[in-house]
Design a protein around this nucleic acid. Structure first.
Length: 445
RNA sequence: UCCUCGGUAGCUCAAUUGGCAGAGCGAGCGGCUGUUAACCGCUUGGUUGUUGGUUCGAGUCCAACCCGAGGAGCCA
């Protein structure tokens, strides 16, 4: 058996005999020549079977291969511009072919399919080129997130998924029976992060998070992954500086390491190359004025209706989309009205109707990818806000403790992985940015 | 929860005014030395989402329900 190599490194083996262990992605051929596209998890490459050069039984076996059959191919690597693949341009002149398993009739053909069918077959759909490319990018995004934080003094702290009460008292939570009591699946680790900073200074949590909202849009999942950094002694300005460094690093890392995958997805990377600090900072007041102006100047009655807005309203998806169209990179919108944000956000100095909150909006209509704020550090103010929002004071006893023992200004944010991946990869729907997405209408497979 | 659209062969879709349920792809067989979703010939393929109703006759009309998709609200 010759050297077993990964297709992603195939350029290093030109002229050498190698072995590829994989699966048949596609096949075509003529009478005396067969072209097999073989994928091995790291890429796709063509194996050529030429009848006069092979024992008859090997050529016949190649001809009879079905889509997704498991195969081991041995042969010499050749450079050939006609050869398709990821990365393309290389093929194996096959000397030997071993059929590990002959696949049964595979439901996902190279032709078009509907969304429902593909989601029903998600366990197989992830093998398809675009899904594979997208999920490879997801893995790189997740690693790049950790990479930036780990090299900037952040300590990863796991926060609980089973929680006793609402994190923010707003969104709908999934209930779980806990030995007769009701507990809830976490929708954020933030409050625990705020405890962790007093031990570690800079922390982050990274894991799944759950929202039982009945949202049916291409931007929503009921289970999604979120990374949440929290930093002691950091105000709102410091938070924005950190966020733009962090997100820029993630995007640039994907550009460095996942070019072939971005090509598979036909992503226009010019918009990604723009993603460098600083990001434009737009106050809520300014954004409000701009959106109002766009609405007034629009001739489209439908858009006019969607863009209806009064001061104090949170922005909806249509507002975000119109606003981000004005910029060529992600933007910060900061200083939202206190009424539309969570209780723990620090009020703006001398303007209590506004809080020190900030959302990052991705360009090209992908919407909100991070939400964050400077947190209230004063115990009296925090208690007042808990009362104003009619939250149960006793549930926040431990959280109030954090304001008694060495309380400092601090801030943090949460970044939604699927939305970020969908934006970077240029994918229409967030569900494709998760290997096995959970949506309002689907928990299978 | 509300609004809109959809459900016919394994898949993607068609079916005129209510009148024999079809095509392409896939799969099977044969042919072809450079394919890129190859091509050519033959073969194979049906509980029309469910239940009830109208009718001589329903994929088509009516009612209820089920499932899915897109959007709104809410949110990352």
């Amino acid at each position: 058996m010759s050297n077993i190599v990964a297709i992603q490194n195939i350029a290093d083996y030109i002229g050498q005999e190698v072995t590829i262990q994989g699966w048949l992605y596609a096949k075509t051929g003529k009478g005396k020549i067969q072209f097999l596209q073989v994928r091995d998890g790291t890429g796709i490459m063509q194996a050529v079977l030429f009848k006069p050069n092979l024992p008859p039984e090997i050529f016949e076996a190649g001809k009879r291969l079905t889509q997704e059959s498991a195969v081991v191919v041995r042969g010499v690597v050749k450079e050939n511009g006609r050869a398709p693949g990821v990365p393309g341009g290389f093929e194996i002149d096959t000397a030997d072919l071993q059929v590990v398993q002959l696949s049964q009739e595979y439901p996902i053909t190279p032709k078009e399919h509907g969304v429902e069918f593909l989601l029903e077959n998600r366990h197989l759909w992830i093998r398809s080129r675009k899904q594979w490319a997208l999920l490879r990018i997801r893995a790189t995004v997740m690693r790049a997130c950790r990479e930036w934080l780990d090299t900037h003094g952040y300590v990863e702290m796991s926060t609980p998924i089973l929680t006793p009460a609402a994190g923010e008292g707003t969104s709908t939570l999934f209930e779980v029976d806990y030995f007769g009591d009701t507990v809830y699946l976490a929708q954020t680790g933030q409050l625990y992060n705020e405890a962790n900073i007093y031990s570690f200074g800079k922390v982050y949590c990274f894991g799944p998070t759950f929202r039982a909202e009945k949202s049916k849009t291409r931007r929503h999942l009921t289970e999604f992954w979120m990374i949440e950094p929290e930093t002691a002694y950091q105000d709102l300005d410091g938070l924005m500086e950190m966020e733009e460094q962090f997100v820029s690093h993630v995007v640039q890392r994907v550009l460095q390491e996942r070019r072939p995958e971005l090509e598979v997805l036909e992503r226009d990377i010019r918009m990604l190359e723009n993603v460098t600090p600083p990001f434009p900072r737009v106050s809520y007041d300014e954004a409000f004025e701009r959106i109002t102006k766009i609405r007034e100047e629009s001739d489209d009655p439908e858009l006019k209706e969607l863009l209806k807005l009064e001061w104090g309203d949170d922005f909806g998806s249509p507002h975000e989309t119109e606003l981000t169209k004005l910029y060529d990179r992600p933007i910060f919108v900061y200083g939202f009205p206190t009424v539309c944000k969570a209780f723990y956000m620090e009020p703006w100095p001398n303007r209590p109707e506004v809080c020190k909150s900030v959302d990052m909006l991705a360009p090209e209509g992908y919407g909100e990818i991070t939400g964050g704020s400077e947190r209230i550090s004063d115990p009296d103010l925090l208690l007042k806000r808990i009362h104003e929002d009619n939250l149960p004071e006793e549930a926040f006893t431990w959280y109030m403790d954090l304001r008694k023992y060495g309380s400092v200004p601090h801030s943090g944010f949460g970044l939604g992985i699927e939305r970020t991946v969908a934006w970077i990869a240029g994918t229409h729907h967030v569900r494709e940015a998760n290997p096995f997405p959970r949506t309002l209408g689907r928990v299978y497979p």
